[in-house]
Amino acid sequence: MTNQQKIIEAEAALHQLLTGAKVVQIQRNGQTVQFQQTNKSELQMYINQLRHSRCALGGLV
C-alpha cells in the first residue's frame, strides 16, 4: 500500500468516526488496528505522520 493510499484509508476512517461510527479499522504495519471515539486523536496523529513522511519525500500535502 502506498503512502497516499494509507492517508486515504486513514482519513476515511477518521471521517467515519466523526460522523458517528463507533469503531473503525485500518491496516497499519501489516496489522489491523481499531480506533474508536476515545482514541480518534491517535488516528489523527497517524494521519499527520503519514503526511509528514510524504512531505519529507518531496510529495504534496
Rank of each mutant, 00 (worst) to 15 (best):
L17G: 05
L17S: 04
L18H: 14
G20V: 08
A21T: 06
A21D: 14
A21S: 14
K22L: 10
V23I: 09
V23Y: 10
V23P: 06
V24M: 02
V24T: 06
I26E: 00
I26M: 00
Q27H: 08
R28Y: 11
R28P: 01
R28W: 09
R28C: 07
R28G: 00
N29Q: 11
N29W: 04
G30P: 03
G30L: 08
G30Q: 08
G30E: 10
Q31N: 09
Q31D: 13
T32G: 09
Q34V: 01
F35C: 01
Q36C: 13
Q36W: 05
Q37I: 02
Q37H: 11
T38P: 04
N39Y: 05
N39Q: 03
K40D: 01
K40M: 08
S41D: 15
E42M: 11
L43T: 05
L43P: 06
Q44P: 05
M45K: 15
Y46W: 05
Y46F: 12
Q49Y: 08
L50D: 02
L50I: 03
R51G: 00
R51P: 00
R51T: 06
S53L: 14
S53H: 10
R54L: 13
R54V: 05
C55V: 10
A56P: 00
A56C: 11
A56R: 07
L57A: 14
L57I: 02
G58Y: 13
G58N: 12
G58M: 12
G58K: 13
